[in-house]
Amino acid sequence: MHSHTKTSNVDRLKETPMTNHLNRRMALARSAQVALMLGGLGLLPRTALAAYPTAAFEAKTIPDLMKALGAGAPVESKDVTVTAPDIAENGAVVPVGASTSLPGAKRLLLLVEKNPSMLSAAFDVNEFVEPSFTTRVKMGQSSNVLAVALMADGRVLYAQKEVKVTLGGCGG
């Protein structure tokens, strides 16, 4: 949207019959800005689109999800923690968290078993962040909430907790 207005400015400058040195210099400076902005815009979607795992976010069951992520069958583990309330009065805003005490986690996932699509959020773990994330999700109905840790050695560990929802959060 910004780049649009900028480009049209440049065009206008170029077309003015009064164009002189000054205007041309301004136009050049502007187009350099535009090129920079476009470059930035062009870069972002390319990396992001390649990374966004659409299939995983459309998976309806745990086996489907694991297949989409290229991971094996999950095993329950005490070293993975899911934080969620026992009862959520408002399903539109349910605070949930995933964390693990194990080193070597590659990714942490938050799933809501009975949502139309299970996967809510996936976090990449690296050496700069703790494997512990909290966010808020929508829940359509009472369901198990799962925290899944994909380990660097290929293991898939999970923890689950049942959350009772008094008022569904998907707005009918």
Binding site: Y52, F57, S117, F123, D124, N126, V129, T135, V137, G169
Partner: peptide, 13 residues
């Protein structure tokens, strides 16, 4: 870069 996360539509408003 320290964090990358992908979200689905079920994250709250």
């Amino acid at each position: 870069p320290v964090l990358t996360a992908e979200w689905g539509p079920s994250v709250s408003k």
